[in-house]
């Protein structure tokens, strides 16, 4: 078909038809497809935004729980921090140690501390505290109470020994860890109060098992105390005992220093240092 034939067949109607189809094609290719692509792109962005929104909402939903956790944590930090003194509280700490000793009838013979120390590995500064204590059964209870109420006090050495007829002596050395002057500075150390409901811890040991120093007993056995004689008067035996160059008459129940006369026999006298018994024979 030649151009002339085609020209002859092209009527206005056909031209309009062709124009309509071309226009439709142009609309599809030039407008519809880009618009559809844009919708797909925007939809994808919106989907991502929804995912992000869900994630953010999930995160935000944790806020009340986290705030509650913070409240609990702050509370527990406060409880712990208020039990640990700072270096500025040391005078009050020493006062607390003395005041608590009074509650347990313990005499504080010596109470000293070294300057504040710190090393790189340690969690906090500390002071080394040394105490010489004198008391009866309450001595260990006192030390336990100090540890309980002053929980950052690390006992490093503790020695107890008999210090008299009814008393014990204790030498106590420990490190009192102090709170760093950091974030928790605003919590003030609370001077601990005894728990009346809990009551003091009571040791189980009998005080008689802590005997007199072996050297004292050995000295007595080796002649520092001598039985000079025994007389019997009105049915009661009285012993003449020489101790450290001095002589004295003793009957059953009397005291020779820290030793009690528990039995007087015709040629012997038995002394008790606590539950340790020592028999002195005449002429030894």
């Amino acid at each position: 078909m030649s151009w002339e034939d085609l020209k002859e067949k092209l009527s206005l109607g056909i031209i309009i038809c062709i124009a309509l189809y071309l226009l439709a094609g142009v609309v599809v290719v030039g407008f519809f497809f880009p618009a559809r692509d844009q919708v797909a792109k925007l939809q994808s962005e919106l989907d991502q935004a929804k995912v992000q929104e869900t994630m953010l909402n999930t995160t935000i939903a944790q806020l009340p729980n986290l705030e509650a956790q913070k409240g609990q944590l702050t509370g527990s930090i406060q409880v712990v921090a208020e039990q640990i003194p700072t270096q500025y509280d040391l005078p009050q700490v020493l006062e607390f140690l003395r005041a608590t000793a009074l509650r347990f009838d313990v005499d504080v013979e010596k109470l000293s501390h070294e300057p504040v120390s710190r090393d790189g590995n340690s969690q906090g500064p500390w002071v080394t505290v040394t105490m010489l204590l004198l008391g009866d059964e309450g001595l260990l209870s006192y030390i336990y109470e100090v540890q309980r109420l002053l929980p950052s006090f690390h006992v490093e050495g503790l020695t107890i020994a008999r210090a008299g007829r009814t008393q014990f002596g204790a030498e106590l050395e420990g490190k009192l860890y102090l709170r760093d002057l950091g974030q928790d500075l605003f919590y003030a150390w609370q001077v601990p109060a005894p728990d009346d409901e809990l009551g003091p811890w009571v040791p189980a040991f009998s005080r008689d098992v802590v005997g007199w120093p072996a050297a004292v007993i050995q000295a007595m056995a080796n002649g520092s105390v001598q039985l000079v004689g025994v007389v019997e008067r009105e049915g009661q035996r009285i012993a003449l005992v020489a101790a450290d160059g001095q002589r004295q008459w003793l009957s059953q129940g009397d005291w020779l220093g820290d030793a009690q006369v528990v039995q007087v026999e015709p040629k012997a006298v038995t002394l008790a240092l606590g539950t340790t018994k020592l028999k002195l024979q005449m002429g030894e």
């Binding site: 712990v80 640990i84 969690q123 906090g124 260990l140 030390i143 336990y144 540890q147 309980r148 929980p151 950052s152 006090f153 690390h154 006992v155 490093e156 050495g157 503790l158 020695t159 107890i160 020994a161 008999r162 420990g174 860890y177 102090l178 709170r179 811890w201 040791p203 189980a204 040991f205 009998s206 098992v209 802590v210 005997g211 007199w212 120093p213 072996a214 606590g274 539950t275 340790t276």
Partner: peptide, 30 residues
Amino acid sequence: LMAPLGQVQQIDEALALIKGEVWAETATWT
């Protein structure tokens, strides 16, 4: 910073087990 407890209890436990003619002169925890 909190210290462990139990030092006095350990001394007490050892002393509480003393029976008969045995006497402690010093008890030291370290």
